[in-house]
Amino acid sequence: MAFLLDVIKGIFMGIANVIPGVSGGTMAVSLGIYDKFISSITGFFKNWRKSCKILLPIVIGIGIGIIGFTYAIEYLLSQHTFVTCMTFVGLIFGGLPMLYTDMRAKMTETKSKIGVGNVIAFVGLFAVVVGLPMLGVGSETSSVLAGTPVNMLILFFVGVIAAATMVIPGVSGSLVLMILGYYYGIINTIKNFLEALKVMDLDALLNGFLVLVPFGIGVLIGIAGIAKIIEYLFNKHSVMTYSAIFGLVLGSPIAIFYNTGLYKHLNEVSIIKLFLGLILCIIGGVMTYYLGKKEA
C-alpha cells in the first residue's frame, strides 16, 4: 500500500513538473515526501538499498506523470485553462497545513521564533516565484529538437538548470525551460519519441535519444547537486528554510495564473466553469491533505 501511495504521489510530482508555473518541489512538500526524497538522493551512496526502496516508487510515478501528461497538457491548458489551474492550486494549497505543522515542530525543537530574517526569507522568495514568469519567455519553438552535437551540449546544461529548479519548492522547472526557450521543444521531442517507439521509426528514435539522453543526464546531475544544498539548509537553517518555502508555495498560484495568461480572461470565466474549478480546487486540496497525512 505504501509503495502504491508513493507511486501516486510521484505521478502528481511528474504532472506538476510538466505544467509551467507549477513546482514539482512544491508538490513534493505538499504531499509530505520532500524530506525523504531529498535525503534519499543525498545519501544514495551511503545507503543505496534504502534510497532505492524510497526512490523507486516515486521515480516510477514521476515517469508515468510526465509521459502521461505530456499528451494532455496542451489540450487542458488551452481548452480548460481555469479548471486545470484551479485543480493545481488546490493540490498545492492542500499541503499547507502539513507544512505549517512541520514548521511548528522545528520551531519547538530548536526553540526558535519568527523573526525579521524569516519574514525577509518569506517575502524574498514570494517575490522570486511571482516575478519569474514576468521576466518573459525566450524564443520558443514548437518543432522537435535536432540531435546535433551543439544541441546535445546545450541541452545538458539546460537539463542541469531545469532540474535544479524542479527540486526547489515553489520554483517551476518547466517555467524555467520556457524562459530559456526549450519547453515546447522538449515536450514535442518526448511526444515524437513516444510516437516513433510505437511504429519503430529508427531515425526518429535515434534523434530523440540524442536529444533526451544528454538532457536526462543534466537533470540527474542538477537534482543531485541542489539536493545537497537543500539538505544543508534544512539541517542548519530549518525555520528560515520553511519560511522561504511558505513564500514560494503561496506565490505559486499567482505564477500559474500569470504564466497561462488566465489573469487576462478571468472576467470571461462562466459560472459553470467557476463552480467546477472551485469544486476541483477543494477536491485537490483534500486529496493532497489526505496523502500528506498518510505520509506523516
Rank of each mutant, 00 (worst) to 15 (best):
F122Q: 09
R49D: 02
G94L: 12
V130Q: 13
R49W: 03
Y290I: 14
V150S: 08
G90E: 11
M152P: 02
F156G: 06
V219A: 06
G138E: 06
L175I: 02
T148I: 06
L262G: 03
V18R: 04
I73C: 11
G261I: 15
V171A: 07
L175A: 10
I67V: 15
A244Y: 13
G61N: 01
L125T: 10
I186G: 06
L210D: 12
V167Y: 00
V116M: 14
P169N: 01
V219M: 15
G170R: 04
M287Y: 10
I11L: 13
A255H: 11
Y100W: 15
M134N: 12
N235V: 08
C52Q: 02
G218V: 07
I154G: 00
G94F: 14
S78Q: 01
A224R: 15
I8F: 15
G185T: 05
L205M: 09
C52R: 02
D201N: 13
L175Y: 15
L280V: 08
R49Y: 06
S243C: 14
S252W: 03
G131L: 07
I60T: 12
L76F: 12
F246S: 04
S30T: 07
K113M: 12
A121H: 12
T26W: 01
P57T: 11
I223F: 13
V128W: 09
E268I: 05
I186A: 06
A28T: 10
G24M: 00
S112N: 14
I73Q: 09
P214S: 10
I8S: 07
K50V: 13
P97E: 15
A244H: 11
A146P: 00
A255F: 04
V59K: 07
G124S: 15
V286F: 14
M178T: 11
P169I: 04
Y258F: 10
N188Y: 03
T189N: 13
T165I: 14
V119G: 00
Y258P: 00
T110D: 13
H237I: 10
I271N: 08
V144M: 10
I229A: 11
F156C: 08
A2E: 12
M13L: 13
V22T: 14
I66G: 07
G159I: 03
G218K: 10
L205K: 02
K50I: 07
A16Q: 07
K294D: 00
P214V: 06
V130P: 07
T87P: 04
L212A: 07
N192P: 01
V59M: 14
A146G: 01
L145Y: 06
F157K: 08
L56P: 00
I73S: 14
I38P: 05
A28F: 01
D201Q: 03
G90I: 04
Y184E: 13
L197K: 00
Y232D: 07
H80K: 12
G21L: 09
M152H: 08
G218I: 07
L5E: 05
